[in-house]
Amino acid sequence: MKSGRLVPLLFLAPALFLFGLLTIYPLVRVFLLSFFYTEYGFSGASFVGLENYAALLGDSFFRIATWNTIFFTVTATASEVGLGLLLALLVSKRFPGRFIVIPTLVAPFVLSTMVVTAIWRAWFHYDFGFLNNVLRAGGLPPVAWLFDPDIAIFSLVLVDVWQTVPLTFLILLAGLQSIQPEIYEAARMDGAGPRQILLRITIPLLIPHILLASLLRSIDSFKIFDKVYALTGGGPGQATETLSMYVYRLGFQFFDVGMASAAAVIMIVIAGALAALYAVRIMKGESHAG
């Protein structure tokens, strides 16, 4: 198809302008800011080299936030992919009402994170929350869901699982349905039992989808902010402080722009590594995983 050289540029211009203003400039800027000490906000910046990074590595809060973020990311991703797989296997075959069950299972994922958080904050309430009411009705002791430092991060995982299992479920269900029925028939002809079929055929064929779901969820859990902000505020103590919360606090509460930028750069590097994994996966899988 013929077209002048200018036309593609013209078409890309609005997107390029928006990216330049809202992404490229901010990325460069945050990188530069990370080498400066700034006096309360943006005024009186002085170049300090790598001092902000050195200060971060020496800051126990930063180490705790990093550890919590990794712990949350791994725990949430593993639970979400595992449960998503179980759910997908559960509804992969036809049964009455399946057409209602599937969209219903997806409902939590479309709710606003703030709505989700509002519900669960009420459910976690020690005295009147739904969860503790159920525990007490069953004769069990109530749990300090958000105030026990050993439990709070698992409560966040629980909320994240409820909200995002629909995504892993949908991806894995699509994967299951893309497996040709003839493969199963051949396996049955050869005398394979249900367990063998699951472990030797279904799971190996699902690997690309399992990887996709894991990457999508790990990239997303790594960013976690809203739920921490509204459920625990990072507490009790620093038990649920995450990197996003840490950057928010430094930049928007203590106005230590230099330090916050250095922490942001470290986050970009980690997210970039995850993204690279993802990019490789997409390039490789473009032709068959669909």
Partner: peptide, 21 residues
């Protein structure tokens, strides 16, 4: 690739410069 990288970056890391913009 650039679009992908942006999609995957945490929103908070751009927040400080975006505030200035």
């Amino acid at each position: 690739l650039f679009v992908l990288l942006i999609k995957l970056s945490p929103p908070i890391v751009l927040a400080i410069p975006l505030y200035q913009v």
